[in-house]
Design a protein around this nucleic acid. Structure first.
Ligand code: MN
Ligand code: MN
Ligand code: MN
Ligand code: MN
Lengths: 220, 220
DNA sequence: AATAAAATTTAGACAAATCTAAAAATTTAA
DNA sequence: TTAAATTTTTAGATTTGTCTAAATTTTATT
């Protein structure tokens, strides 16, 4: 089966939303897609006709197995292209999303296979998000939230959940990127802020809001 | 100004046709685009409204300077991506056209700049066609048709004008690719066929029809 | 349980890109 | 120089994806 760019964007968006909430509703999908609820309803009918999702009117919806498979293929392409843009073409990691949003719709399967191979079958994209393999299998990483780790423990930044330009700009300022090693010096109970020490940088303070969006891993 | 995929495909196609014939007519464009004359007329109105071409109804049409500029940008992207697919991802040269036909519509200017730089600012695509530079300037190569070169002169294959799958399959069989060095041993007046000797291969005979589509260059 | 509020869908419209069939203009040829 | 053939355009539909405004259904609140 073949899908339009618009269908693929909806499918991917539904996939991300249902990862968090199980079942998805019309308004939140409309908000996420920057479109109108009526447009969402129209598209839901098409995707249901193509047997990609469970959907009863007024009842919410979620992708079935066929839908998830399509979503994972698009996610795979998106993240492989992001990896390419950052690692090969040397883009900053906060500039690649909109370009990958276009590249993910290029249809050739062989292109994806060869790109994957050329890149060395990477497991994570430049934002630390896992790249599904050709079978849709997603690598798991035992990761913790930065706000929850013990002090004085050296950890490695593995992903960032808020990927807005504002957030990424802020992380760039702190010189925090994926793979950056750091430790928490002190936790302030008053507002949940943290003093952290990034390797080779002087200590600095980050808000709880930032910390909540940074995930790290460390050896046990 | 921003253009749709469909507009870009029409513009590119008009560009190629007017290179040969000066001014283009509705039916030949429809044939080349695998569409109907009525659809061409519809698109011509849009492109004229966007001031990309000279067009009076029933009178034929051609791109103006603005239109040529757009065409050259699309051609540049197409050929850069083909170069990428062959040289970086190791696709066979006869497989890349349909993929580049999609990739050429990715809109980011910075992507094109970085891709060009990463590839080493190549001047010719895998089919030997020149790649316009960022200003739309096209490199010229002093080339001759294979059917016209003197015997026993070593020449280098520089481009192939018929790029159908059938032609490329045939050239692959003969082990002729861009950059291949060869010489003509003998010319047969009867049917215009040639005995050629490809470097490191034993001599073989090619038809006049094939030779007419192969262009070569050599030092004077 | 009745009513108000919120969420969702339907109805109807529009733009882009395509098509077929018919009309109009141009070119060719008797 | 008319008539025939060819080319091109117009008229009117269709599909996809979107929208606004109105209607419907569900959920929350008195
Ligand atoms: Mn996208
Ligand atoms: Mn990403
Ligand atoms: Mn194209
Ligand atoms: Mn080419």
């Amino acid at each position: 089966m073949n899908f339009t760019t618009s269908e693929e964007n909806y499918i991917k968006c539904i996939y991300h939303l249902q990862q968090e909430t199980g079942t998805v509703n019309t308004n939140s999908l409309a908000a996420e897609m920057h479109t109108r609820p009526a447009s969402v309803t129209d598209m839901l009918k098409k995707l249901k006709a193509k047997k990609l999702l469970q959907y009863e009117r007024y009842r919410g919806f979620k992708l079935n197995e066929a839908g998830k498979k399509v979503a994972l293929e698009v996610v795979r392409k998106h993240r492989l292209w992001e990896y390419f843009l950052v690692e090969v073409l040397k883009f900053d990691w906060d500039k690649v999303h909109p370009i990958a949003e276009e590249l993910e719709h290029i249809s050739s399967d062989e292109l994806v296979q060869r790109l994957d191979k050329f890149l060395g079958n990477p497991s994570f994209d430049p934002h630390g998000d896992p790249i599904p393999d050709r079978n849709g299998k997603i690598p798991v990483l035992n990761q913790l939230n930065l706000s929850e780790i013990p002090v004085k423990k050296t950890v490695t930044v593995s992903s960032v959940s808020n990927q807005t330009a504002q957030m990424l700009e802020m992380l760039k300022h702190y010189k925090i990127a994926l793979g950056t090693q750091l430790q928490v010096n002190k936790k302030f109970a008053f507002d949940g802020s943290l003093e952290i020490k990034v390797l080779k940088q002087s200590p600095c303070i980050i808000s709880e809001q930032v910390a909540k969006n940074v995930f790290v891993h460390y050896e046990l």
